[in-house]
Nucleic acid binder design. Sequence first.
DNA 1: CGATATTTGTCCGTATGTATA
DNA 2: GTATACATACGGACAAATATC
Lengths: 256, 256
Amino acid sequence: MTNLLSSLTAPAEDAEQASERASFWSRIAQQLADAIGQGVYRPGERLPSEHALAEQFGVNRHTIRRSLAHLDQRGLVHATQGRGTFVEAFAVDLALGKRSRHRQSLAQAGLRGGLQVMHAQEVAANADQALALQVTPDSPLLFLQVLGEGAGQPLHVSERYFPLPRFTGLAEIVQASGSITAAFAQLGVADYQRQESRISARLPSKEVARWLSQSSTRPVILVSSVNLDPQGVPIEFSMAWFAGDRVTLTVKHDEP
Amino acid sequence: MTNLLSSLTAPAEDAEQASERASFWSRIAQQLADAIGQGVYRPGERLPSEHALAEQFGVNRHTIRRSLAHLDQRGLVHATQGRGTFVEAFAVDLALGKRSRHRQSLAQAGLRGGLQVMHAQEVAANADQALALQVTPDSPLLFLQVLGEGAGQPLHVSERYFPLPRFTGLAEIVQASGSITAAFAQLGVADYQRQESRISARLPSKEVARWLSQSSTRPVILVSSVNLDPQGVPIEFSMAWFAGDRVTLTVKHDEP
DNA sequence: CGATATTTGTCCGTATGTATA
DNA sequence: GTATACATACGGACAAATATC
């Protein structure tokens, strides 16, 4: 039973100086990250169990858990109870511009993807939504919860609000076509633009983390934006959570 | 010695059903978050020690540590060895547009802030930098490491590259004025625009976390961008790390 | 300045619960 | 149902950084 930590502990025990003074857990995390980087463990693959890693590295299982939690936070792996700890895949580049479209962005990246309506409901506008969409509070809105996929994995989830009755039936078209743009087109909005986007980084709620199939300790990018029709009338207010380290958003400031 | 967990454990012990089945650590984290939200613990204030909290809540210190780690990740508190665990302050809104300026953004938010040069050095352009700045590889560049402050705390750190010899002496002007815009102006660039920005969310390196005075388990927004002079010539390539939950970036897509 | 107490950080060991294969 | 694997929680010990006297 080889002790992979021997190369780590040896210097600290031989000489009291120990140039490598990092903690066990961080050194093990680094070694695992290197192994992933070198393809020893490939995306989608399962790592050895915590118990096995603890034996391999000659440390307690809790120390391994600390290392794995760190890698989970950094997005390299993700643990699921009862299944194991799996290596994550890599990032996708998405455009964030006044005229960017989800499907188009993915196509440019050589990927296929679409939108899936998880939930649709009619709601009454609250103050924020009313302000953003320039309607009176309590106006009827269509509320959609949408999952955006690409490269075979969830890239973002969003909550979107559309004024009613203008966009009655939009949910069904989005569900059928997998595209907001297509749904807008079918309802007479041939073009639209994003007004502004507000961006911050957060740790996701448990629910959002679950939808994105990621740990709730991995960051997400939160983007709030408003879309306008060609007449400048707001047609959509959305809050989207992007898997922070699976996605890079590119803002083009000089778009037409 | 009151056991603050009594209200938590009671239902689980009274009836086996226990509608609140969340873990101790998450419920304690929620209670602490609520206390912070209600101003029981104010920004900058120190929380009771882990030992004290463990006694208060009637749980093991490790359970408290789990709760605090969660709040640390979410940015509500930050722990420092030997000092304690402190409540963090709140977010600042920054503009991210083709013509946004750090100082101006802060002024709009009613805050004062400036840039501080942490490190300046002449370097040779690598492939990425050369491509972004449209110079030949190994061309001389001025490299600046800059800390951006606002509201009395670090908001972002950045690594910036400027072509030489055009911007010789820029570091000293930035240091003296606390402003990149002022330095550009003094060197004959009266105006400039951002070409594009690439945004992702990451967990910071230990170094970046230290500069931002934040935990390395709290997310940062990474923004890479290129600035152009009025003739469209690249004058700056930068990578900036924003304290993810102290900062909201707003992208204006319809700026002039 | 040094000595000491406090506080967080790391690590081990053990036990039990819960989700999945 | 059984076995496996991760999740939670307890207990103890010492190290490292900081505050305090």
